[in-house]
Amino acid sequence: MVTAQDAIVLWARLEAEAGHVLPPPYWASAWSGGQGLARYILDHPDTVAGCRVLDVASGSGLVAIAAAIAGAAKVTANDIDPYAIAAINTNAHANDVELILSSNDLLDGDADGVDVVLAGDALYHPAVAARMLPFLARVSASGTRVLVGDPDRGHLAHDWLERLATYEVPTSGAPEDAQLHRTSVLTPRRDKVDDRCLPARTVDAVRPGCCRAALQTSGRARSGVRGPARS
């Protein structure tokens, strides 16, 4: 993976070159939640193999690349930051995988035509979580598998999520990760949906098929996480 040793220094340099204020380079680091989710996908390739996958807030593309390596039929890496799209494209080529790149804001939609939605460390700020959580709950209610990687930043409604695995991960260099070493992979519970996140509607039964089978809780897997990418 092509990442920055110091994202703050990179940010300052990019702003100096651009001559105007730029959003933080979230795409320049392998965030803790993304590392954990990528590791889970590589450890459990059946969760995405043969499936149509959407990675939202893809950042560096780490999770999307892991899904492609694990055998997903089609992987869309989505991020609204054009710098992130460029980084994802670079990292995909470095890992010899093919990704579909999307810079559209998808959070008001339903992720139609997708079997699995991945969100690696996409709940890093309350304002972002306020939009992301309803999207994930809505998508899950439609029968689409949802996997979330989160190092407990405090913006998750844990009562409607079940933990599939916990990983010890190295800090990434992102300022937000300075004190984080443990991250969890979670999925919405089919029997309990947080009504703060999901509008009143009937939760569809999980449809059969390779991408619809219910996930089995794997317990706590503790290991150092290496990104799936080749350096």
Score class of each variant (00 low, 15 high):
residue 1 M to T: 10
residue 1 M to C: 12
residue 3 T to R: 07
residue 5 Q to T: 11
residue 9 V to A: 15
residue 12 A to D: 14
residue 18 A to V: 04
residue 20 H to G: 04
residue 20 H to V: 01
residue 23 P to T: 04
residue 25 P to M: 00
residue 29 S to Q: 10
residue 32 S to A: 14
residue 33 G to I: 05
residue 34 G to P: 03
residue 37 L to H: 06
residue 43 D to Y: 06
residue 47 T to R: 09
residue 49 A to E: 15
residue 50 G to L: 12
residue 50 G to M: 11
residue 52 R to Y: 01
residue 52 R to T: 12
residue 55 D to I: 04
residue 55 D to M: 06
residue 57 A to I: 10
residue 57 A to G: 15
residue 60 S to E: 09
residue 62 L to G: 09
residue 64 A to Y: 04
residue 66 A to P: 07
residue 70 A to P: 07
residue 71 G to D: 13
residue 73 A to T: 12
residue 76 T to N: 05
residue 77 A to R: 02
residue 77 A to V: 05
residue 82 P to N: 10
residue 84 A to K: 03
residue 85 I to T: 10
residue 87 A to N: 06
residue 88 I to L: 11
residue 92 A to T: 04
residue 92 A to K: 03
residue 92 A to P: 11
residue 97 V to G: 12
residue 97 V to K: 05
residue 98 E to G: 12
residue 103 S to P: 00
residue 107 L to E: 06
residue 107 L to F: 11
residue 108 D to C: 05
residue 115 D to C: 01
residue 118 L to A: 10
residue 119 A to S: 04
residue 125 H to C: 00
residue 128 V to F: 02
residue 136 L to I: 14
residue 136 L to Q: 01
residue 138 R to D: 07
residue 139 V to S: 08
residue 141 A to T: 06
residue 147 L to P: 01
residue 149 G to S: 04
residue 149 G to C: 03
residue 161 L to N: 02
residue 162 E to H: 13
residue 165 A to P: 06
residue 165 A to W: 02
residue 175 P to M: 09
residue 176 E to Q: 12
residue 178 A to M: 05
residue 179 Q to P: 00
residue 189 R to H: 02
residue 191 D to K: 01
residue 192 K to Y: 11
residue 195 D to T: 13
residue 197 C to D: 15
residue 203 V to C: 14
residue 205 A to M: 12
residue 206 V to A: 15
residue 210 C to W: 09
residue 211 C to S: 11
residue 213 A to W: 07
residue 213 A to K: 14
residue 216 Q to A: 14
residue 222 R to W: 14
residue 222 R to Q: 12
residue 224 G to I: 05
